[in-house]
Design a protein around this nucleic acid. Structure first.
Length: 977
RNA sequence: GCCGACUUAGCUCAGUGGUAGAGCGCUCGCUUCACACGCGAUAGGUCACAAGUUCAAAUCUUGUAGUCGGCACCA
């Protein structure tokens, strides 16, 4: 088999995805087990205008890892993909497109505009979807949904009408957040605050009518004075008491406005007198209502001044008008002063333009009922369970508690048009269709509302509208959410019909960013509870933000963005994915190229380790039994005895034979123990969404344990063509037991250690399975190359599927396969090798020089070292091993101590005594330092008394160990001096 | 103004009561027959600061400083 020397990601990424999809691996229907538990995730639908960014890549990686593991575990998994119609963004694209042609939306009309929008969506709307395929995302494309699909749109209409009929949705005139760039209202949740240090507080003097007095008001938006309809003061403010009820002659306008008293005014702030612009400020609006003030709108929808602002100002941009107002006041001698003022401005989340508070008639959704539903879920059931819980649960709850009405209409054309019709008199008819509206109105002469719904209105339904809910099904359970109103027609719900809605809802987990917890997560919880009486999802994994190298959020304007596709090209999809998983701690993280390189190297390491095993795989195959400790032990206790009962044998001898047949060296039992520990840890971590822990466990198991130690320890066994002593003994036994792994003869007649090869291949295979959810391409590529892999290795739920690693059983880890004794014994061997290597490095012994290693240890430990003699000699590059109770070596020896042994390397002529003394002293110092700390603890009577006995004993043992080692090192030092 | 998070090795970050960790970087050595995207061996930290709780604190409590976030206010 020809295998490239280095992993080439692109080759692996080329074909597997297509094959997986073509074979139906992504769809839940691949699961043949009728009793399989479902596991479902809906994707946060990316905007059709979007292209893949690092945040998507991160979230998709996590979702895919979760889905792939569950699928391998035999769950009936569905990861549902889709896209969001993104009202404003698409609208903006089309407006730009029209502008380029010298057209405007108004000129071409709504119909043409929408035609173009759909065409745009068809052409570009799948960009991100295609990019997701590159990621390896195992989503079920047959269930792809778009928020403006027919059934999803129907769901929107039903929800709107239901909420309207129940009185939660209403139309009203309010101060709203107006974006002059997008020319639409936006909701509070879409407004961000931006602090500006260069703000100004302008003090304007208003002359009082029939008086020479003037009242000074302070404002950050002087242009709004053109819409002032009062000046307000605090009723108890002595300075203005006599002016209450008097009138102001409002400069520049020829209008006369009252001076009113209101508790809202803070006498301490500014001048204590406030200009009141009810149509352009929410507080002024409220105050205006209390005092019956006129509401004078002075701006157009693009934030230029309108006729009401006066002929001098009409048509001026709001900021130009601001300048001009200040100029004119100065000319009139009414400009008192201008102070510098740090101000926070509301800006549009998407286009960053400054929001204009504006009086406007809009549709609103009263959130009282749904807020309570969401709060109840959180308080009674703790749903959704946020990961990480802190701070999200608290922030989410606090937000809900203070939730105000939601502005749901938008002055846009692209989106779900509001199902409300008006007759000539302006009467409104909300209906599920125009026909229904005509019937209700008794006339066909109706006009539908021009506005569309907030994009988040349809995404709020995503957790059930995507499963086919369109409100047409009658409820299976009457009411349940509203005791007063159990009208079935108004409360469609799930039916027990095996539909996707019944099977896959509620979803298991939502993975998303913290920026849309309010906009989306909360609203899905609410609407899903209200309309299908289920939770939308049980868990909510909130990822941190991937920041640029400068520690700031990635953005085009900052130029600090990192394109996932570039990373895919440069480092490979798998490296990028596992890197992203490794940083998924929930905290924000700075992008770091060197870290992704680490995982690129890791991918190459996996490739090469597998390559090595494959180059030595003749006669071997993947065989789970080869690494199953348990079944073998069971065999040994019962069957084996039976098998050999005719043979006269002492129990010890029998045990020996069993051990030989098992052919499991300390290294084997050690790596099997490590493998199972890793599997248990990885599963435990993923169950808690601790992706970084899972990755770290896999990384270190594979690289450190498997590659650096296991492969090196068994290398000879695997590569040597002549049979080892152990394997030799195996031959005859295998015949007795009909062992199918009986070593065949190779072409040149030499025997191979098939068992060892099978074992290492099997360990590789298990490792690849565990790595698969993070590195799907690499693992599939390699798995397909392993000898005798087939769909026999699949989880029982996928027995008839085309062979692929993605349907193999995910290793669960076997607690009983953990062998602490083997791990300790292996550690003793590793310690010896490391110490010898340390001596070699410090004494600068050439690689070609092969010293003799003397080890002094007790009988048990000697046995361990004897069993691993070949490995110790090879890995420590030594000639021979001398085992004894006590060291007997020349003075010119370098020495070291481990927990179980004293080590000496006779280095006649090679040793530098100064260096050796320094080396030993260094070790003594380290141990003494540790010892000092431990003894301090032991000398504390309170510690002895109160700490757990186990802990105290542990420290006593360690002290004893240190002292043994120190005295040994001291003796060595004395000998040198 | 209120609430919260963070501060650990040169860098980027793990680590929730019991001997301080990883990757990268640094230093030294190695064309050791899977891998130089590699192998081996070192060095490097008063865990922001201060006080407290505890036999024991990076970890719990309080305070201080800095960084960042959410909410409110913003005449």
């Amino acid at each position: 088999m020809e295998i490239a020397k280095a992993y080439k990601p692109k080759e692996a990424e080329e074909s597997h995805y297509q094959k997986w999809e073509a074979n139906g691996c992504f769809a839940p229907e691949i699961n043949e087990n009728p009793d399989a538990t479902k596991y479902s995730i809906v994707i946060p639908p990316p905007n059709v205008t979007g292209s893949l960014h690092m945040g998507h890549a991160l979230q998709h990686t996590l979702m895919d890892a979760l889905i792939r593991r569950k699928r391998m575990q035999g769950f009936k998994t569905l990861w549902l993909p889709g896209t969001d119609h993104a009202s404003i963004s698409v609208q903006r694209k089309i407006v730009e497109q029209l502008r380029a042609e010298g057209e405007t939306p108004q000129k071409v009309g709504r119909e043409e505009f929408l035609r173009r929008a759909w065409a745009w969506k068809e052409l570009y709307g799948n960009t991100i979807v295609e990019q997701m395929k590159r990621e390896g995302a195992s989503v079920d494309w047959s269930r792809h949904r778009f928020t403006m699909d027919e059934s999803l749109s129907k769901a929107v209409i039903v929800v709107f009408c239901t909420l309207y009929e129940e009185g939660w949705i209403y139309r009203g005139k309010r101060i709203v957040n107006w974006c002059p760039f997008d020319k639409t209202v936006i909701s509070d949740a879409e407004v961000k605050d931006e602090t500006r240090k260069d703000g100004k507080l302008v003090y304007l003097q208003y002359p009082v009518k029939d008086s020479d007095k003037k009242i000074t008001v302070a404002t950050t938006r002087p242009e709004t004075m053109l819409g002032d309809t009062a000046v307000a003061v605090n009723p108890s403010d002595e300075r203005y008491k006599d002016l209450i009820g008097a009138s102001i002659l409002l400069p520049l306008t020829n209008r006369e406005i009252p001076i009113v008293a209101d508790e809202y005014v803070d006498a301490e702030f500014g001048t204590g007198a406030v200009k009141i612009t009810p149509a352009h400020d929410p507080n002024d609006y409220e105050l205006g209502l209390r005092h019956n003030l006129e509401q004078l709108v002075i701006m157009n929808d693009n934030a230029t001044m309108n006729a009401a602002a006066g002929a001098d100002f009409e048509g001026l941009d709001r900021f130009k008008a601001r300048e001009k107002v200040i100029e004119r006041f100065e000319e009139l001698g009414l400009l008192e002063k201008i102070d510098d003022y740090e101000i926070s401005l509301p800006v549009c989340e998407r286009c960053k333009n400054i929001i204009e508070p504006l009086l406007s008639e809009q549709w609103f959704c009263n959130m009282d009922e749904m807020r309570e539903m969401a709060l109840d879920l959180m308080k009674n059931e703790g749903v959704p369970h946020f990961y990480p819980q802190v701070p999200h649960e608290k922030v989410y709850t606090a937000w809900l508690e203070n939730l105000k009405d939601w502005t749901i209409s938008r002055q846009l054309w692209w989106g779900h048009q509001i199902p409300a019709w008006y007759d000539a008199e302006g009467n409104v008819f909300v209906a599920r269709s125009s026909e229904d509206a005509y019937i209700a109105a008794g006339t066909g002469d109706l006009t539908q509302d021009n506005d569309v719904l907030d994009t988040w209105f349809s995404s709020a339904l995503w957790a059930f509208s995507t499963f086919g809910w369109d409100g047409s099904e009658p409820p299976a359970v009457a009411g349940g959410f509203n005791a007063d109103n159990q009208d079935a027609e108004n409360h469609p719900s799930a039916t027990a019909d095996g539909s996707d809605l019944e099977v896959f809802s509620p979803t298991d987990v939502l993975v998303t960013g913290r920026d849309i917890i309010f906009l989306w997560v909360s609203r899905m919880m609410m609407t899903t509870k209200k309309f299908v009486n289920k939770v939308a999802f049980n868990d909510a994994v909130i990822t941190g933000t991937v920041l640029g190298k400068d520690g700031k959020p990635m953005s085009k304007s900052r130029g600090n963005g990192v394109d996932p596709l570039e990373m895919f090209d440069k480092f490979g999809v798998d490296a990028t994915r596992i890197y992203l998983a490794s940083i998924a701690t929930g905290a924000d993280i700075k992008w770091n190229d060197t870290q992704i390189e680490t995982y690129r190297n890791f991918a190459n390491k996996i490739w090469n380790a597998t390559r090595f095993c494959l180059l030595n795989s003749e006669g071997a195959k993947v065989d789970a039994e080869s690494i199953e400790i348990n079944s073998r032990n069971e065999t040994s206790s019962a069957d084996w005895k039976k098998k050999y009962e005719l043979i006269t044998m002492s129990p010890d001898e029998l045990q020996k034979i069993i051990q030989k047949e098992q052919n499991l060296s300390i290294a084997d039992r050690w790596i099997i123990s490590r493998l199972n520990k890793t599997a248990l840890g990885v599963n435990r971590a993923l169950d808690k969404y601790e992706f970084h822990t899972a990755v770290s466990l896999l990384y270190h198991f594979f690289w450190d344990d498997f590659c650096d130690w296991y492969i090196e320890l068994v290398k000879d066994e695997i590569t040597k063509s002549e049979p080892s002593a152990v394997a030799d003994g195996l031959t005859s036994l295998s015949e007795i037991s009909n062992n199918e792994l009986q070593p065949p003869a190779t072409a040149d007649g030499s025997d191979l250690n098939i068992e060892a090869r099978t074992r290492i291949i099997t360990i590789i295979e298990q490792s690849l399975r565990m790595l698969h959810p993070f590195m799907p391409y690499l693992t599939e590529e390699l798995w397909q190359k392993l000898p005798n892999t087939s769909n026999q290795l699949h989880n029982a739920a996928y027995q008839s599927a085309e062979q692929t690693i993605m349907l193999t059983d995910f290793p669960s880890g076997d607690k009983s396969a953990i062998d602490e004794r083997a791990e300790a014994e292996m550690q003793a061997v590793i310690d010896v090798i490391s110490k010898v290597r340390n001596i070699r490095a410090e004494m600068q012994i050439k690689p070609s020089d092969k010293p003799t290693i003397h080890i002094a240890a007790n009988a048990d430990a000697q046995k361990i070292f004897a069993q691993n003699e070949a490995q110790i000699l090879k890995l420590a590059r030594a000639e021979s091993l001398v085992l004894s109770e006590k060291l007997d070596v020349p003075k010119a020896s370098a020495k070291a101590v481990t927990t179980l042994a004293e080590i000496a390397l006779p280095l006649e002529g090679l040793i530098d005594f100064e260096k050796e003394i320094a080396r030993l002293e260094n070790q003594v110092n380290k141990l003494e330092k540790e010892n000092e700390q431990l003894r301090k603890q032991l000398s504390n009577a309170n510690f002895i008394e109160r700490a757990p006995a186990e802990k105290v004993q542990g420290i006593r043992d360690r002290v004893a160990e240190i002292e043994t080692q120190v005295s040994a090192l001291r003796l060595n030092l004395e000998a040198l001096k």
